[in-house]
Design a binder for these strands. Structure first.
Lengths: 223, 223
DNA sequence: AAAGGTCTAGGACTAAAGGCGTATGGTGGG
DNA sequence: CCCACCATACGCCTTTAGTCCTAGACCTTT
């Protein structure tokens, strides 16, 4: 792990807030705290925590409102959010979970339970990031078509080498004249090839042919 | 909504399993069931459910083992997993949550609670998928652009509504005449809009504009 | 050697695309 | 009320795209 995970604690009771912060800091987490929901939201936006611990009952803005607000912001749509609840509030837990909280802990919080819950959610979030990286790795730079080679057009669309070259440039918006200059042939030749291309692809103009080419180049660029 | 969400129910008690299945099917979900943990795992791998409901106490393989196994597989690292627990098992919930479960429901399950919990987790999963797509630039149905709506062109390219409509059709290879018929206006109008589109996109012909449109529709499709 | 595919390219033509100017209504905001 | 923006539309003009036909040069396969 490169850097310490950052945990935001939103809790109005000072004693409990400090105890939690101390406990988590001793475990190697970076801790930021907020004493109510409104400040908690601001702090979250500023600090970008990896996990949020949040009390339910708070003045100004309760825990439900906090999680609801966060879940509406793309940056926090996936940030693990754990509730801290007193025993009597257990029936209200459902509300929080349905707003998109990830877990809850019953106060008084046992050290091992707290750490286990946090670790579990961090592991979950990392699995999420892993998935993102995998997908991103398969398609670097997005899922954009790769115009670096005409080969995919030749193999996947059954075009001849020259036809594939022509289509490669046409699909990038070049005019027939441009393509003829690029390929060093007559514009008539480009037109001739384009005619063959249209027939092979079953289309009737360069725009449709380009669409086919772009999709082919996007799909068969890297896997 | 494109297709119904698929829910896997892993529950050894036949009556409860059927009741849950019936309830969820009436709500429009596609339901598959399994009568124990081992079969549940196999079913999950085969059916790729969007949500998994799983009993804790089961012969052969209990719910903890199921969630632990699933969380180890990349394909299921992020699939919402909800426990169904009897009242007396509440202390064991922590174990399940720490294995990566997303929520739990206490039996007997109240209909509204069940639906709310499922919807909440589906919403969460979709938010995550959204993030995956944004970061990875990936697309669920492959890498194909979605021509079902001009909205992305309007919002992401700064086009007016009508311009977006025109481009949507042009990008699909339609001629100006075709577009004018489709949109019920003069071909001159189509040309006029296309001129504005070229200027806004910084391109000089319809093929290049289509390229931009296709990439935009591939990136920002679905919502 | 003959056949077939590819790449090249010409002529003659039609169709479509695109630029430029102008103009009319509608609509929303200062 | 006027202005800015939008959608609509026409005319005139130039450029580009695309079709059909023909045909030579160069390959490989038969």
């Amino acid at each position: 792990m490169s850097t310490a995970k950052k945990i935001l604690i939103i809790e109005d009771q000072g004693t409990m807030r400090r105890n939690l912060a101390l406990l988590l800091e001793m475990e190697g987490f970076q801790v930021v705290t907020a004493e109510n929901g409104r400040i908690g939201l601001e702090t979250a936006r500023r600090e970008r925590p990896d996990v949020i611990l949040c009390d339910v009952m708070m003045p100004e803005m309760d825990g439900y409102a906090v999680v609801q607000a966060l879940r509406g912001e793309p940056d926090f749509a996936t940030t693990p959010f754990l509730f801290l609840t007193a025993k009597g509030e257990k029936s209200d837990i459902r509300v929080g979970m349905n707003f998109g909280a990830d877990d809850y802990l019953t106060k008084p919080v046992v050290r091992d339970d707290l750490l286990a819950a946090i670790e579990a959610r961090l592991a979950r979030a990392e699995a999420q990031d892993e998935r993102v990286r995998e997908l991103a790795g398969n398609h670097p730079g997005g899922h954009l078509p790769d115009f670096s080679s005409p080969a995919p057009l030749q193999t996947h669309l059954g075009l001849t080498g020259r036809e594939a070259e022509v289509l490669l440039w046409v699909a990038q918006g070049k005019s027939n004249g441009d393509v003829s200059s690029i390929l060093g042939c007559s514009e008539k030749t480009v037109k001739q090839h384009l005619g063959s291309i249209f027939e092979k692809l079953g289309v009737e103009n360069r725009t449709s042919a380009s669409l086919v080419a772009v999709e082919t180049l996007a799909k068969h660029s890297r896997g």
